[in-house]
Amino acid sequence: MKSNQRIASLDAPLILFTAIMIIGASYMALIYAPTERTMGLIQRIFYFHVAAAWLSFLAFFIVFVASLLFLLKKSRDWDQIAVSSAKIGVIFCTLVLITGPIWAKPIWGIWWTWDARLTSVFVLWLVYIAYLMLRGYIHDPMKRGSLSAIIGIIGFLDVPFIYISIRWWRTQHPQPVMIDGEKSGLAPEMLVALLVSVAAFTLLYFVMMRYAIRLERVQDDIHHIYQDIQNRDQ
């Protein structure tokens, strides 16, 4: 309980700073950055889309590291970090999958194409949804930790295979209209806006992690209290 209070004292400045960064990033993305010549206003979704994608990769990497450490150290802390990061990763991965089609429809004329990058993100989303589902079906906390850590590790090691295989699969079947929006030379203002946006999202990740981890701790506490009551009744 005490550690929770210690964490809380850091909250206010961190949240304030994150909020300022997010407002700043929105300004940069919506007003400061120049409008893209061919794609127009819709291209501004790029700053959120790419930042969310970066964040979900970061979050899944943290799941991998925390899962490894949980197996080695057997400390509940690492499991709490892993699951919190997985949840946040899935949220931002979902945002990528939503903002992507919104951007794609006016530009490519279609909501979705089975392109390498899109498909990889979609598969990644499925892997971590399965990870979270698995946790729901195991009661014992230590067992839940180690079993899901195994999926957290295997899932992350699978990522390069998923990406390479889907890319090869796609390069062998040429796709219709595809504009390589991201590599077509970014104006310096656009790059700055993107970096600010990525920084803001990363800060948001840490804020969300703090709350998610605290939530996991409270759930653990409740689980222990519940068990104590059950033992007393017997």
Binding site: V123, L126, V127, A130, Y131, M133, L134, Y137, I138, K143, L147, I150, I151, I154, G155, D158, F161, I162, I164, S165, I166, W168, W169
Partner: peptide
């Protein structure tokens, strides 16, 4: 994955849900 899901309720259901996305590179 089978050894992992054998420890859960819903084992028949969870095996394909976890396994199939992981196997996509192999399948392709």
């Amino acid at each position: 994955v089978s050894a992992v899901t054998a420890n859960t309720k819903m084992r028949e259901m969870m095996l394909p849900i976890i396994l199939f996305p992981l196997l996509i590179p192999l399948f392709i």
